[in-house]
Simulated scan of single mutants.
Amino acid sequence: MGDTVIGLKGKDFTLLAADTTASFSIILMKDTEDKITAVPNQNILIAAQGEQGDRVQFVEFITKNLNLYRLRNDTNLSVKASAHFVRQELAKALRSGPYQTNIMVGGVDDIEGAKPELYYIDYLSSMQEVKYGAHGYGSYFTLSILDKHYKDGMNLNEALIVLRMCVAEIQKRLLLNTPSFIVKVVDKYGSREVDLFSDQTLPADAMQE
């Protein structure tokens, strides 16, 4: 599990980052893999880390079922309920065919008053709501940085600065090559990809409200 995912909460958003490498044994298969999936029609992002097959299959299963719930019931699950669904499915598979994947679920929904949420879930189906977290080998280098520099109520640019520090440390210290990361933010306006190395503001349509 040489890949890395990182998540942190800001003032009114949740920020997720993941490396873009996909490997098999000692072979680099691709370096454009998107490991952060948006749940259709919901302000929820799921970042996954782990074995390639398990990661892709499990995230697809989760997103399809969350969307099916919305279609059947004409309502969305909250971010918290979605995270509990993820944990439940990992627990079900634990003693039959466990998924070797670790998950970060982040989102913002109106059910909780547009409050950002972030849930740390590992392959053993343990779950905890956190302010920040990381999975994978990169977590060995990033958790101390997050612990020192994270603060409540950060704006998006402040959060990106902390994230840049984490990525720089991973690329400097980790033996495995992780040349690029994808970063996505989710807020009450939806989810979108952001550039890790540029200043960010609210979307143009949001500024007009």
Rank of each mutant, 00 (worst) to 15 (best):
M1E: 14
M1H: 15
G2L: 05
G2T: 07
G2D: 07
D3A: 10
G7P: 03
G7C: 03
G10Y: 00
D12S: 08
T21R: 13
A22N: 02
I26Y: 14
I26A: 15
L28H: 09
L28D: 04
M29L: 15
K30M: 07
K30T: 09
E33S: 07
D34Y: 08
D34S: 12
D34Q: 12
T37N: 05
A38I: 11
A38F: 03
A38K: 10
P40Q: 07
N41E: 14
N41H: 10
N43V: 00
L45A: 03
Q49G: 13
G50F: 12
G53A: 06
G53Y: 03
D54K: 01
V59L: 02
E60D: 04
F61V: 04
I62L: 00
T63V: 06
N65A: 05
N65R: 12
L68C: 06
L68S: 08
Y69F: 12
R72S: 08
N73K: 09
N76W: 05
N76E: 11
L77K: 09
S78K: 06
V79W: 01
V79G: 02
V79D: 05
H84Y: 11
E89I: 06
E89H: 10
E89A: 05
L94Y: 05
G97S: 03
Q100A: 10
T101R: 00
M104G: 07
M104A: 13
M104W: 07
V105T: 09
G106S: 04
V108L: 00
D109S: 01
D109M: 00
D109G: 02
I111C: 07
E112C: 14
A114K: 15
A114P: 04
P116F: 03
L118G: 13
Y119T: 07
Y120N: 09
I121T: 01
I121M: 03
D122L: 03
Y123Q: 10
S125R: 05
M127H: 01
M127G: 03
E129M: 14
Y132V: 08
Y137S: 13
Y140G: 14
F141P: 00
T142P: 02
I145S: 06
D147C: 01
Y150N: 02
D152F: 13
G153S: 11
L160N: 08
L163W: 04
R164S: 12
M165V: 08
M165D: 11
C166Q: 10
C166H: 10
A168C: 12
Q171Y: 14
L174C: 12
L176D: 15
N177I: 15
S180D: 12
D187W: 08
K188V: 07
G190V: 03
S191D: 05
R192A: 07
E193S: 12
V194S: 05
S198P: 05
D199S: 10
T201G: 15
L202V: 14
L202I: 13
A204V: 12
Q208S: 07
E209D: 09
